[in-house]
């Protein structure tokens, strides 16, 4: 609200990919936010013009190009995509202020309808093959590499009874697979450069990038 307070004409852009799936920034949420903003400003005595549009994918320049025609009539853009989408829009339309409407938090999976939980931190050096398909980086509060800490009680993490102990899950899973010996493998200290320690990351597929 504060971000867009000074502007009268807003373009609200959603994305039909991940943020749709997680009910954060799809067509429906765009409509809701638009209406909510409209009402909020009206209540404060200000009427603003909000245009709505949802792109197929906001992190691809070709899709973002679709917005060209709409840019003239707006003072600012609010993106409901993940951070990638927000930045892509900002990159393409340099003269318009772009604001995020979604706090992008993590890469996760749906535990059930309406509940999402973190599963991957994109560390660039995947351990899932040896940890029974459960990631200690994303799911252990301490990101421990070789078994649980002393705070693991009844399979729960010491930070909250709501949080499963990742290492308990790993152990259960390995046992089920009959791969208990893997638990004894020592995982050496992790090289965090691939996780961003080496600066902004980039992947180039030479065959595709041409």
């Amino acid at each position: 609200m504060d971000y867009i307070q000074p502007f009268n004409r807003i373009l609200l852009v959603g994305c039909n990919e991940c943020v749709t799936v997680c009910s954060a920034g799809g067509r429906k949420e765009v409509g809701l936010l638009s209406s909510a903003l409209q009402s909020a400003f009206l209540s404060a005595g200000k009427s603003i013009d909000i245009k709505e549009h949802t792109l197929e994918r906001q992190c691809d320049p070709e899709y973002v190009e679709e917005l060209v025609g709409m840019m003239d009539g707006v003072d600012a853009v609010v993106s409901m995509a993940c951070g990638c989408g927000v930045q892509e829009v900002a990159r393409r339309y340099k003269n318009k202020p772009v604001f995020p409407a979604v706090n992008t938090k993590f890469m996760g999976a749906s535990e059930r309808q309406g509940v999402w939980a973190e599963r991957c931190q994109g560390c660039g050096n995947c351990l899932l093959g040896i940890t029974g398909g459960i990631c200690p980086i994303a799911r252990c509060s301490k990101q421990l590499m070789n078994g649980p800490c002393g705070g693991s009680t009844n399979g729960k993490c010491e930070i909250s009874k709501e949080v499963d102990c990742a290492w308990q899950l790993i152990w259960d899973r390995l046992k089920m697979l009959g791969q208990e010996e893997r638990y004894l493998d020592i995982i050496p200290a992790k090289d965090w450069r691939t996780a961003g320690g080496g600066g902004p990351r980039k992947i180039v597929r030479e065959d595709l990038a041409g």
Binding site: V21, C22, S23, R27, S110, Q113
Partner: peptide
């Protein structure tokens, strides 16, 4: 065209 195959309808 609009469907993101998110499964929300499947579950709802």
């Amino acid at each position: 065209q609009k469907c993101a195959a998110c499964l929300i309808c499947v579950r709802a």
